[in-house]
Amino acid sequence: MLKNRHTTISLIVVILFGFVLFYIGTDGFKAFTAETARLKELKEEKPVFPQVTMEDSKGRTYSLSEFENKYVLITFLYTSCGTVCPQLEKNMAELYERLPQYVGKEIVFLSISFDPTRDDPDRLETYRKAFGSDGDTWRMARIVDKDELDLLLERFGVIVIPDGNGNFTHNSAFYLVDKTGRLSEVMDYTRIEEAADTIATLIESEKGNKK
């Protein structure tokens, strides 16, 4: 009887200890996965978009200052992707269509390739046309300099793992950069309506504060 009691107490202690470790490890149950933890950290840190030079499908080169005084909605992709990226950009196109009153005025869209060797301007131009991007208020670009590209991916928590066969395993989201060049929101790319509402609310709130 006493032995069973000790066994029960030991089991309870182990469970409680594990519970505490889980609580600490998940930051109070707010981060159940590495991806959730990454998103939580990004939203808290709000990193600044670094100084990088982008080249778009028209062969134009510029930095983020090209979109001064505008929000920039960003996706990261590679055009050879046959899985996530086409759906990501399809959803980007739908989000673009949901915000006509803001596009070009308060917000621009930007799809950045992390496969700059293959995704030259001609290839980006083909991809742009496939998704109905106008090449102006929604641009597709690459960052040729590897160090600059790596810095941006690291700062925004974008994980890109080559498989050795020309493909990549990577995470995907909608990244919203505010008018100061700081990451404002990271949104689930599958929740298009929710993302549209978030963006519209931010823009309208800013307009209201200026009155």
Rank of each mutant, 00 (worst) to 15 (best):
P162F: 03
E204T: 14
G164N: 08
T137P: 02
K179P: 07
H170F: 10
S172Y: 05
P100F: 06
S57A: 15
E41Y: 12
K129H: 03
S111W: 03
Q87S: 13
P162C: 02
V52S: 05
G82M: 07
T53S: 10
T36D: 05
S10L: 15
S133Y: 10
T33V: 09
I15L: 13
L153Y: 03
R98S: 14
E55S: 07
I9V: 11
M187V: 04
K3C: 04
A200V: 09
I9M: 03
R191W: 00
L16I: 13
R128C: 07
K3N: 08
S57E: 14
F32N: 13
I9D: 00
P100H: 08
F168K: 05
Y102M: 05
D27Y: 10
G157D: 06
E68T: 14
K43M: 11
E125R: 13
R38M: 11
G181D: 06
C81P: 04
R5H: 05
Y127Q: 14
S172L: 02
E68N: 12
E66Q: 15
H6E: 08
D136L: 12
E45K: 15
L95Y: 04
S63I: 00
L16C: 10
F67G: 01
K105Q: 08
E185G: 03
V103F: 01
D178P: 11
R123T: 15
D120Y: 12
D136K: 12
D134K: 07
E45W: 01
S57I: 04
Y71N: 09
P121H: 10
I112C: 03
L64I: 15
R182G: 13
Y96S: 00
R155N: 10
I24T: 13
F168G: 08
F114K: 06
D134I: 13
G166M: 12
F76I: 07
V48C: 02
E66G: 00
R60P: 00
S113W: 11
K3Y: 07
F156Y: 14
E41T: 14
V177R: 06
T198Y: 06
R118S: 04
S184T: 04
E94A: 06
L2N: 01
P121W: 13
Y62I: 03
I192G: 07
S205L: 07
A195P: 06
V14H: 10
L16H: 01
K207S: 11
D163M: 06
S111C: 02
D147T: 15
R118E: 08
E206K: 14
D136P: 01
P100I: 09
S172C: 03
V13F: 09
A93R: 09
S184K: 10
D122I: 12
P50N: 12
A196I: 03
D150R: 09
G157A: 05
L176N: 08
Q101H: 00
T8Y: 03
L99C: 11
N167H: 11
N69T: 03
I9Q: 00
D120T: 10
S113N: 09
K40I: 14
L16A: 14
F29V: 06
K179S: 04
L64R: 15
N209A: 15
V144W: 00
N69Y: 05
T190K: 15
F114W: 10
A196W: 00
L73T: 01
V20E: 03
E106A: 09
L152E: 00
S184C: 09
R98W: 01
T169R: 02
E55R: 11
K46C: 07
S111F: 01
K90D: 11
F17D: 01
G208L: 14
V108Y: 04
E106H: 14
T33Q: 12
T36M: 13
Q87K: 10
